[in-house]
Design a protein around this nucleic acid. Sequence first.
RNA 1: CGGGACGUAGCUCAGCCUGGUAGAGCGCUUGGUUUGGGACCAAGAAGUCGCAGGUUCAAAUCCUGUCGUCCCGACCA
Length: 587
Amino acid sequence: MLWSKSFIPTLKEAPSDAEIISHQLLLRAGLCRKLTGGLYTFCPLGLRVLRKVERIIREEMDRAGALEVQMPALQPPEIWQKSGRYETARDVLYKAKDRSNKEWVLSPTAEEVITTLAASEINSYRQLPLNFYQVSVKFRDEIRPRFGLMRAKEFIMKDAYSFDASDEGAMASYRRMYDAYTRIFARCGLQAFPVEADTGVIGGNYSHEFMVPAETGENEVVYCESGQYAANIEKAASQGAALPTPTASTGAAPERFATPGVVTIEALASAPFSVPAHAQIKTLVYTVDSQPVLVLLRGDDTLNEAKLGGRLGTPLFRAATPEEIVQAMGARPGSLGAVTNTRRNAQYRVLADLQLRGARGMTTGANEDGFHLRHVDLERDIRVDEWTDLRTVREGEACVTTGKPLKIRRAIEVGHVFKLGTKYSEKLDSTFLDTDGQRKPTVMGCYGIGVTRTLQAVIEQCHDKDGIVWPMSVAPYQVLLTPLGAPGTPTAVLADQYYRELTAAGVEVLLDDRDERPGFKFKDADLIGIPLRVSIGEKSLAKGEVELKPRGGALEPVRKEDAVQRILSHVQQALAKLDPASAQRPS
RNA sequence: CGGGACGUAGCUCAGCCUGGUAGAGCGCUUGGUUUGGGACCAAGAAGUCGCAGGUUCAAAUCCUGUCGUCCCGACCA
């Protein structure tokens, strides 16, 4: 491609609404442009990268035995009602109406559609296992689109769905996808690692997310340096808080004492009360199905809402409003407690975090503004319905596996593999006759990769102060030819010759044929990040040489008649380095 | 959904407080000189100041509403 014939709208300055580096470079390198919040047009260069990521994904999915299909983005709400997600996913569903006022759903994902297909077409164990995938546009009504392609209203996703006859089969399918994902991200030049993930409302199954470490990521990952444990903070567990929970009973009954104006854990921890946070019980009120649910945590712990949601089995819950709290508890936030005989209604469901097991001599709110209770022995004084893990792990706590201190870092979620079980197959009637003649629901898994997000994650990970540094495998072009002289001069003529030879050899070449000064071309070259630049200038040409300049690497003078061969081998080596298969092959 | 900030030329921004002829840099067009890391000179094109009301002799500027964008929050009672 000739630069002058393409459309590469580079920018010297970043638009002010681009906050993070990958978003800025996405725009500055002319890869895409914003139409409006959360919606982007891909320009030619960006589309080439997108297609390359998609190709890698397709190759690896095919290799793993998955079958490509294409499902409608416009979907009937009935199947969403059947699966129950018309309600549980209502916040992210875009809906549209046609001229007869019938409602449609714009697909945020496709479990309902693929399971409908499976329901009608899969009848026998002999047809299983099957794994279908597609690469398509998805729609999500995000609360807050941000960071360019990272969180958009419309994005490209690869979604795959496996169907098996048994749980063991489903695990094998899961494992195949897990391995395929590992290969996909490696081939994209991404450092991505799997972490245990929250299964949320779908239930206690099995799930991993593939994370790209980045300060700008929206997820927090808890990990052990031994490499033996890594989990999304929504899922992560530890051996417990560093400070032990007090378990020595004072023997006394709960005693009410005045705490005027004290409505925070910190205030109660300060003089004159000086009750350490870890000797306090924090009482939170949530609203679930219009009913209050009390959630108990140790004073210095933080609720993990994902864990709470998993326990409640629904995403349709929220923190109660101050008005609801006063009505339910008879006191305002800051004075709440769950001690049974101080509660207005002893019937409310009470969930307590495991960190509070055996807690004695605790202090908590008295359900009366301006008063707290001390000498509270949890299991004596509070009727707890369910003990469960609800707290958020903190850095430095001991790893469950190794006992070593856990660390926390931010990351971008680029892929998610999920063992679904029979949730969808049961609701949408995907059943088959097994060897024993019994009708059984298919055992499913689902597997997603955010394609557009992956593209931006590569930029987030592969850049320097001058611009993008594309891995060879996903670069929009493999080689950039930069003649430094004006059109028609010997440098331009030689560049044309290289262009023809390299193109004929199957290399993807961009030729900067613009009549610009060298410095200008170099700046643009660094910005768009083509992995190998070949500079053809009069100075080196006088010595019979041209210059190979790997992006982010050292300049290498090459005799001009050897250049094409050197370029070819450089490209091949760079590609081979990114291919896990060839890396494993003994050379 | 709550809070905050910002909407002025394609991009980055000044002007607004204190109302009175719409500005700069980059980019763009034309000509010339340049040509190994975002050149220089000259001439030019380009903005209903987000939109709608209001106040005023007069509004980019003050007021109200609205739309859009970005940031923070939407556990810690």
